[in-house]
Design a protein around this nucleic acid. Structure first.
Length: 274
DNA sequence: AATCCGCACAACCGCAGGAGT
DNA sequence: AACTCCTGCGGTTGTGCGGAT
């Protein structure tokens, strides 16, 4: 049974996106949303396949993308979630507002894997000296210590991060070029959002994007993070117990919840041993 | 100044799974 | 139930850039 090819190879462009293509894609999605990726490039007048358009949008052009370097807290979050979930980058990404699975995947392969390896080398040296502890105990202590320190760090850096966001106009302009008209306003809105320590409703972004909030669809907004479903993941049962988003909660001072989450997860699944 | 090398990241590819018919 | 279409995901590759030699 033949699958339709992703795109007819004839005449469709590949490789890096040009500024013009980006503008076309942005303005088309602002006006029409993206109900059908496959048909989108044809309607928008782009010589790209739908897949390429979707990827460009979700990984780069989406207004709620947070660009720039990953904070230490974000990296720690990735490491912890990767321990629990493995290479389920999309699930991990839902816990890091504004970060894409592709970005997280890249960071993992370029930074975190190495960092973890070097960490393990140092921890191996120390754990050898504490071998009398049971496996479970050592796992617990590792998680507790790191989770607690992570939350401490997050609380400490929270206000600092906000300052940086406000003063340095981060990352929206760190791309190959600036998407001035659209993303600058998004950045400003985002900063206000962060300043208020609230996350705006989906409707805000869709209205902002579409002008009148017509049929702009799923911007994967941060506002829905608290409703993230962890289907078939150990977190499902945790979510049902009134725990929303650990990353955000932790940012807001929910250290106890972090602790609770990880201790519960320990009970639910066996963690990989290093 | 030229070349090499490693890193970072954008983009592509193939597959799986859900939805619709 | 079988098939097709579409989307999303994860692995992999390609490319540009900066630092080292």
């Amino acid at each position: 049974m033949g699958r339709a090819p992703c795109c007819e190879k004839m005449g469709l462009k590949k490789g890096p996106w040009s500024r013009d293509e980006d503008q076309i894609l942005i303005s088309y999605i602002q006006q029409h949303g993206h109900p059908n990726w496959r048909a989108l490039p044809k309607h928008a007048g782009l010589l790209r396949c739908g897949k390429s358009c979707r990827l460009r949008w979700t990984n780069y052009l989406r207004p709620d993308i947070k660009r720039g370097n990953f904070s230490r807290e974000e990296e720690d979050t990735i490491i912890h979630l990767h321990e629990m979930l493995g290479n389920r980058w999309s699930v991990i990404a839902t816990n890091l507002p504004g970060r894409t699975d592709n970005e997280i995947k890249n960071v993992w392969h370029t930074h975190l894997k190495k960092r973890l390896e070097s960490d393990h080398q140092t921890t191996n040296n120390t754990t050898k000296r504490h071998k009398t502890k049971s496996k479970r105990d050592s796992n617990n202590s590792y998680h507790e210590a790191s989770v607690v320190s992570q939350c401490h760090a997050q609380q400490q850096h929270n206000s600092q991060d906000e300052e940086q966001l406000i003063t340095t106009q981060p990352s929206c302009s760190e791309s190959s070029y600036d998407i001035e008209t659209t993303t600058d306003s998004f950045c400003v809105a985002k900063h206000e959002e962060i300043e208020n320590e609230t996350f705006l409703d989906d409707s805000f972004w869709s209205e902002t994007l579409s002008g009148e909030g017509d049929n702009m669809v799923e911007s994967n907004s941060t506002s829905n993070i608290s409703n993230v479903e962890f289907s078939s993941s150990p977190l499902t049962s945790i979510k049902n117990e009134n725990i929303s988003n650990p990353y955000i909660d932790c940012h807001l001072g929910g250290m106890d919840q972090w602790y609770d989450i990880f201790t519960r997860i320990e009970e639910l699944c066996e963690l990989p041993e290093f």
